[in-house]
Simulated scan of single mutants.
Amino acid sequence: MAKSLKDRLFELNNLNLSREDKTQYLAKALKDKSNILLANVARIIAREDIKDLETELIASFERLLNNALKTDPSCAAKTAILEALISLDSQEHELYLKAIKYIQLEPVFGGKEDTAVKLRVLAAQGLIKSNYYGVVNELAALLADKEIQARAAAIWALSNCNSLAAVPLLRYKAMLGDNSSRVLSACFDSLLLLEPNDSLAFVADFLDNKSIMTAETAALSLGQARHEASLGYLKNSLEKAIDKDFQKTIITAIAILRNEPAIDYLFEVIENQEIYADEAIIALKSFGDKDILDRLEQIQ
């Protein structure tokens, strides 16, 4: 009588074998039809750093691409296998290139859902880690992915690929815009990290963007960058801002700078009883600093 999946999983997770015997056992297990078991096998291989099974992992991944909705729903096994290959420092570029373009649409209530998003994200990481020569071209395509997580991952990968093309691509993406603050934030943050001096004015230009979401994202990125010159851009934008929510965001961004000029400016806002003074008080209190709290008490 064939063992149930539950029994096979229990056996898999309670192996008491020598390294050689365990490797042979796992190699055989990688031919199993259950994607749940395959995912567990891949995680064990990664955890125990069994590099001898790289070829078997690749073969299992390729097999799961056939009739994928049936053999690997939710991409559970393919995702675990790709994670294992990256962990093992695999240089299998062809597999990463397949994965970064792979889409698996599965039926959900009201339509279909792409369950391969994480797979594309991992593929980008794999191409970066393995120093693939054409990685920038692949990441440029991923920047246009329909899924937010994939676009954000492309930006992360570009910021880590050590390519001269990264900054121009990130600038282009920023100018194209995005309907996700997460993606824009990743873009602005990466630019300010890669080229802080040259990117400061570029990101600050977005403070005047017609989209409040874009302007707020730029403000917060300037604050998080904690560049000395950020305060000037944020102050100038605050003086022109009409939208109350945007004013609040700029005050928050100034507070995030956490340097003496920024703190002094927030106190100045309070002392001059500016219309956004209440927001400045809240921002300063969030520091939880005794000296700042004492100073607040003296002027209130």
Rank of each mutant, 00 (worst) to 15 (best):
N67L: 10
P196Q: 09
N40F: 05
A201Y: 00
S185P: 09
R171L: 10
A152N: 11
D114P: 01
K112Q: 08
L194M: 15
L158G: 06
L119T: 04
A27W: 08
A141P: 01
L69C: 13
I44D: 01
G177Y: 08
E279L: 07
F188I: 10
A229P: 00
K290L: 12
A59G: 09
F206L: 03
N137S: 14
E62G: 08
L97M: 13
D205T: 00
D289I: 15
A157I: 05
S180D: 08
S90C: 08
Q224T: 09
T252N: 07
I45C: 03
E83T: 14
R258T: 04
I100W: 02
G223A: 07
D205Q: 08
K290H: 06
K146V: 09
H227G: 11
E279M: 12
R295T: 14
E113S: 10
E216P: 00
I275K: 15
V136E: 06
L191F: 09
L119Q: 08
N131G: 04
A116D: 08
L69Y: 15
Q24P: 01
G288W: 05
F287R: 07
D278L: 12
E20K: 01
L193V: 12
S18K: 00
K31F: 02
L105C: 04
L57M: 03
L257N: 00
A219Q: 07
T55G: 02
A77K: 06
W156T: 02
Q300L: 14
